[in-house]
Amino acid sequence: MTEHAVEIASGERFEFGANWAQFLNVLDDKRIALAEQSLRTMLGVHDLQGRRFLDIGSGSGLFSLVARRLGATVHSFDYDPQSVACAAELKRRYYPGDPDWIVEQGSALDKDYLKTLGQWDIVYSWGVLHHTGAMWQALENVIPLVRQGGTLFIAIYNYQRVMTSMWTWVKRAYNRLPSGLRWLVLGPAMIRLWGPRTIHDLLRGKPFYTWRHYAEHSVRGMSAWRDVVDWVGGYPFEVAKPEEIFRFYRDREFVLWNMVTCGGRLGCNEFVFTRASHPNNTEK
């Protein structure tokens, strides 16, 4: 049994890949276009022609696909074998046999594996490193993968003084329950996450509007239901304050170029850093 399988069986890890596999059933051109626009906006680019794009924790493979559509040479890897299969499926659908898109299994905590990857123009890891079980080590490990003058785009869960502890308990409970009983956690969490917004939509005469238009609302082309399952089940689970991430990379000679926070609420803070290109740049 693999380490990943042991973690799943012991309730210490969520089956992210199984959830992403279901997302592929609803993935369409509109969602792909939304994801593409979100990546272009955050990176401040029109396309990625001639750029090398490393997708750490590729999940569904959607943003690897988007980077390839924008012209990048892409390398996707994920710790979860079903997530690897998702990215491979998208490659099969849209870029069969393409030598400029590699998909494989790997871990952000495996330094030996990471050393084989070399350096990249863009290192992308959205909502991944906080699920490794060793977030700060993972944040450190990605540094050598970014070339001098290159870009690091990450998203990390936001710290909340009270709710972080509550959600940690919820996620742990969800994964330790037998699959047939997980609705006992998922149901109340669904009410907590979507109840206020659903009531708001009803009061303004647009029942379930936000749910039905979630792909646009999320900006990144995501699925409301799959995001709920991912959020409730997403374990291991770590968080950070925006200033902690900023200082961590500033002290390692990265410059913050773009940032979008979740305003202190539940969700991810997004950071786009540039690695200093002067010759004295060294990891600390």
Results as ranks from 00 to 15, higher is better:
Tyr94Ala: 02
Tyr94Arg: 01
Gly97Val: 12
Gly97Glu: 12
Asp100Val: 03
Trp101Glu: 03
Val103Ile: 15
Ser107Ala: 13
Asp110Ser: 09
Tyr113Leu: 08
Tyr113Cys: 06
Tyr113Glu: 06
Lys115Trp: 00
Lys115Gln: 12
Asp121Leu: 10
Ile122Val: 15
Ser125Asn: 07
Val128Ala: 02
Ala134Ile: 01
Trp136Leu: 04
Gln137Ser: 10
Glu140Tyr: 13
Asn141Leu: 07
Val142Thr: 07
Leu145Cys: 01
Arg147Trp: 02
Gln148Ala: 08
Gln148Arg: 14
Thr151His: 05
Leu152Asn: 09
Leu152Val: 10
Leu152Gln: 09
Leu152Ala: 09
Ile154Asn: 01
Ile156Asp: 00
Tyr157Cys: 01
Arg161Ile: 08
Ser165Pro: 01
Met166Gln: 03
Val170Gly: 00
Val170Glu: 00
Arg172Val: 00
Leu177Met: 14
Pro178Thr: 13
Ser179Asn: 12
Gly180Gln: 14
Gly180Ser: 14
Val185Asn: 04
Val185Pro: 04
Val185Arg: 03
Gly187Gln: 08
Pro188Glu: 06
Met190Phe: 11
Arg192Gln: 03
Arg192Phe: 11
Leu193Met: 08
Gly195Leu: 09
Ile199Cys: 06
His200Ser: 14
His200Leu: 12
Asp201Tyr: 13
Leu203Tyr: 10
Leu203Gln: 15
Arg204Ile: 15
Pro207Cys: 12
Trp211Tyr: 15
Tyr214Leu: 07
Tyr214Phe: 15
Ala215Leu: 07
Ala215Tyr: 02
Ala215Pro: 03
Glu216Gln: 14
His217Pro: 00
Ser218Thr: 03
Arg220Pro: 00
Gly221Trp: 04
Met222Thr: 02
Met222Ala: 10
Ala224Asp: 03
Ala224Arg: 11
